[in-house]
Design a protein around this nucleic acid. Structure first.
Lengths: 327, 327
DNA sequence: ATGAAAGCGCTAACAG
DNA sequence: CTGTTAGCGCTTTCAT
């Protein structure tokens, strides 16, 4: 079907090696023959078979990324940032979605390895020693994003705990005396890796401890909307601090629908600063987790690792507390 | 590094051919030797090199997709749907973002071909005869999503024109007497393929023609927010019909901020029904473009084409007009 | 039932 | 400057 170096060689009456040299610009080669080869290559519509090249070179120039679900705006932005950085460095991005399925995740990792990805970025749903050992045994550079696995596996993220603490400080500073931490993933602790959210709740606890006279409640169920009303009594100034913007948005729309507005003495704060927040009125306070910076950092570090440089066990991107009208 | 069939063969004291047979279950093979091979393969942590396999088989079991920008919620959902269908059929998805850059798009397509993707799904930004010929010359099954290129290139989408017409009918039925079609991409006509939006404006015109006494205005600039106020006079019942949900959201938040609510006699309608709409109050009328169905259909058809079946020049997913409080 | 040999398309080491 | 040879890891005739 497609024309190969072999045929180019035949057409030009030279060896495949010379063709290869002309096309890749390695080694010494006569300017004329080079020109001839390049010319006929173009005219024949020659395209190199990157599969074959990868096989012999031992590198594919492909990165793999495995995320929960890309229709989740957080991961979509993340992937976007990673892709940009990867391409800038000559790498392609292979993406696949693991849907929070632990078995599938393992399968997908293996598959990426089998396809000889040069490196893998993983937002893991698995956790624990066995999983860590599995990852260590891979021979493919890999790093995890967001959910920590073990000190043997390089981790990229932000200081979630400190960020949550700072966010709570903002809320307390605004006079809230009850923080309801809305974090449905917590109830999935047995089923998967929710390190990120566990760090956040630790940070929340830290923040509460910093001040006396502030109550903490936690909603760790997915039917959180049904559990809100008990905290809306108008007496205690209460904020629903959500471990993710989508929960905040969901709560905002629930409240708007039920009370036509944000009830008095009630505030809402999110986490992540996903792009869609920009469309909301009133504006929603949140924690900017620097999705783009994190993604870029992850790609950069992975490429470093591929190139044999050593990278830190843990790397942190910055974060920013963003005030908003919702609080 | 990784153990190969060659080494397995040596360990078991047999030929590579037999190893291959045992591992793939082809041809006759002694049950005992097979068991032995499989056992040692497992114990040695053998993993097949899919690159090598693809090279000899001539198939990679990879699909490629090229979209504008995945942090756009529409494409994120689309990619998600395609990935699901692809994986169900044993294919992996390679994704890359073209950022509405025509040159980059060409480069990316070539790269996907060079990597021997079995098929490619493209949301094209290029257009015209030359581009169509380029695509036809590829030898790799390919189809386009949303933006039509030519009848030589299979197209998947919805009937945008009819959908827009129906949407206008809804608005007129609700008493709107002026439709302001907000479609910034229209001003990029010279710079790229905006077939989708061109179809939509045709449909809008159709819808207006169906009724007399209804005015049409078009905003085809990216600074559309600055151009809204001239249409808000309280006299004529006016709807801002947006060629994309994000424009609708943007306008809604602008209006809420400026007037504290949706001004009297003003309505807003979107297009696409991206998932984030669900968080908005008041609910936003839109056109459900069946993103998931479209994505699934695209993947299915591409796989059919890869398998040598012929597929229609144009395939349409369904759409639905969704009423909402915004109108 | 198993093995030998050839080949996928490319690159690289080594001669000449 | 160019060609020969070998090989990446796998599958696939074709013999045996």
């Amino acid at each position: 079907m497609a024309v190969t170096t072999k045929e180019l060689a035949k057409i030009c009456g030279i060896s495949r090696t010379t063709v290869s040299r002309a096309l890749n610009g390695h080694g010494r080669i006569d300017a004329q023959t080079k020109a001839l080869i390049i010319e006929t290559a173009k005219q024949q519509g020659y395209r190199p078979d990157l599969l074959a090249r990868s096989l012999v070179k031992g590198r594919t120039m492909c990165l793999g990324i495995i995320v929960f679900d890309i229709s989740n705006s957080y991961f979509a932005q993340m992937v976007s940032a990673i892709e940009a950085e990867a391409r800038k460095n000559g790498y392609f991005l292979n993406i696949t979605l693991q849907e929070k399925d632990k078995r599938l995740e393992i399968e997908l990792i293996n598959n990426m390895v089998d396809r000889r990805m040069d490196g893998i970025i993983l937002c893991p749903v698995n956790k624990g020693r066995k999983f860590s050992e599995f990852l260590q045994g891979l021979h493919t550079p890999l790093l995890v994003l967001g959910n920590f696995v073990s000190d043997k596996i390089p981790f990229i993220g932000i200081n979630e705990r400190q960020a949550a603490r700072d966010a709570v400080a903002l809320q307390i500073g605004k006079g809230y005396r009850r923080i309801v931490f809305v974090c449905p993933p917590l109830c999935d602790a047995a089923r998967g890796n929710i390190y990120t959210h566990q760090q956040r709740i630790l940070g929340v606890a830290d923040g509460i401890k910093d001040c006396s006279g502030v109550d903490l409640a936690v909603i760790d169920r997915w039917n959180y909307l049904e559990l809100l009303d008990q905290w809306i009594d108008g007496r205690v100034k209460t904020s629903f601090f959500c471990s993710g913007d989508v929960f905040a948005l969901d709560i905002m729309s629930y409240l708007k629908r039920k009370y036509s507005f944000l009830p008095p003495n009630i505030g809402v704060m999110g986490f992540d600063n996903t792009r869609m927040l920009q469309y909301f009125v009133p504006s929603i306070a949140t924690v900017d987790t620097s999705i783009n910076e994190t993604g870029r950092l992850a790609a950069m570090l992975l490429i470093k690792k591929i190139n044999g440089e050593s990278i830190p066990k843990r790397s942190f991107a910055s974060y920013r507390i963003l005030d908003g009208e919702s609080i």
